[in-house]
Computed example of a mutant assay.
Amino acid sequence: MRLAVIIPTLGRRGQVARLLRYLGDQTRLPDEVIVSAPDATHVELPENCPFPLSLVFGPMGSSAQRNTALVPSLARFDIITFFDDDFVPSTAYLEQVEKAFVENDGWAVVMGKVVRDGATNAGLTWEDAEAALRATEGKKHDGPSVVDHVGAYGCNMSFRSSLVGDLRFDERLVLYGWQEDIDFTSQMRSKGRVVCVTSIKGVHLGIKTGRVSGKRFGYSQVANAIYLIKKGSVPASFVLPLMFRNIAANLAKSLRPEPYIDRRGRLRGNMLAILHIARGRIEPEYILKI
């Protein structure tokens, strides 16, 4: 099978260069890596890549950048893997992804198990990631080896290209695109299973640069959730508890916020979105005006 890796990026030149070098150590090299950025200033390329490497430029935002690379790739590759620019896959990651698709015709989306996630804390370093991956070597996972999901975590997700069809990432989910990954992959469930294979591993560094402001993010935490329910792409039973947990966390921690999270900004964004929804306004792209 022909396999491409797509890496959307914004403002992380050094991180992208390091990830590209690291992908050269995969036991199954990608047939091509495509970096999607607003322009060339966001990308630093390493020398002597052991795989074909291309750049695509287009509108800024996670959904738009994913689509810019996805659309011309569908006819060229059997598997398309998306990595965030701050995701560190195990060296056997792509080999295991290909094996999963070859052996399971009914699978539409495959993601790996995130063994550590810096998005939930101050963030992780490459050294943290490599140590975490070494610690999992040879260890058997407790629990099921395959877990079905409503949707896939966008930091690492792979699609069977033949099943994507006309589906695209929703570009109304602008900038950081909160939940654009779940929106897309939840719709893929009509074509096959969306699964996490727990033997496929990686670490999400959760780098904080290149992200939107606290107020914008807080607005998206509410507005995007309601928008996706209205759209019908994500079940309310999944997205509403997530939305309420985020509001509750922002409210509870706004008195003594973590130094790496703008809790008060997020809470202001939450409240603004709730006000807009109460007035019948469901507009994810409003964050462009904040």
Rank of each mutant, 00 (worst) to 15 (best):
Arg2Ser: 15
Ile7Asp: 11
Thr9His: 02
Leu10Arg: 07
Leu20Asn: 02
Gly24Ser: 07
Val35Arg: 07
Ser36Met: 14
Ala37Glu: 00
Pro38Phe: 12
Ala40Asn: 04
Thr41Pro: 00
His42Leu: 01
Pro50Ala: 07
Pro52Gln: 05
Met60Gly: 11
Gly61Arg: 01
Ala69His: 05
Ser73Gln: 08
Ser73Thr: 14
Leu74His: 00
Asp78Ile: 14
Phe82Glu: 11
Pro89His: 06
Pro89Ser: 05
Tyr93Met: 11
Tyr93Ala: 10
Glu98Arg: 00
Ala100Met: 00
Val102Phe: 14
Glu103Asp: 15
Asp105Thr: 13
Ala108Ser: 15
Met111Pro: 00
Gly112Glu: 01
Val114Gly: 10
Val115Asp: 01
Thr120Phe: 11
Thr120Ile: 04
Asn121Thr: 13
Leu124Val: 12
Leu124Ser: 10
Ala131Asp: 15
Ala131Lys: 15
Ala131His: 15
Thr136Lys: 07
Lys139Phe: 08
Ser145Trp: 12
Val146Trp: 00
His149Ile: 01
Val150Arg: 00
Ser158Glu: 10
Leu163Val: 10
Glu171His: 04
Leu173Lys: 04
Trp178Asn: 07
Ile182Asn: 06
Thr185Met: 02
Gln187Phe: 00
Arg189Gln: 02
Lys191Arg: 13
Val195Asn: 01
Val197His: 01
Thr198Lys: 08
Ile200Ala: 05
Val203Glu: 11
His204Glu: 14
Leu205Cys: 09
Leu205Arg: 14
Val212Asp: 15
Val212Cys: 14
Ser213Ala: 09
Phe217Met: 12
Phe217Glu: 02
Ser220Ala: 13
Ala223Pro: 05
Asn224Met: 06
Ala225Gln: 02
Ile226Phe: 11
Ile229Tyr: 00
Ser233Glu: 01
Phe238Thr: 05
Phe244Glu: 11
Asn246Phe: 03
Ala249Trp: 05
Leu251Ala: 09
Ser254Asn: 05
Leu255Thr: 07
Leu255His: 06
Glu258Val: 09
Tyr260Ala: 08
Asp262Met: 10
Arg263Phe: 03
Arg266Ile: 10
Leu267Cys: 08
Arg268Ile: 12
Asn270Pro: 06
Leu272Arg: 13
His276Tyr: 12
His276Thr: 12
Ile282Tyr: 10
Pro284Asp: 09
Glu285Met: 11
Leu288Val: 05
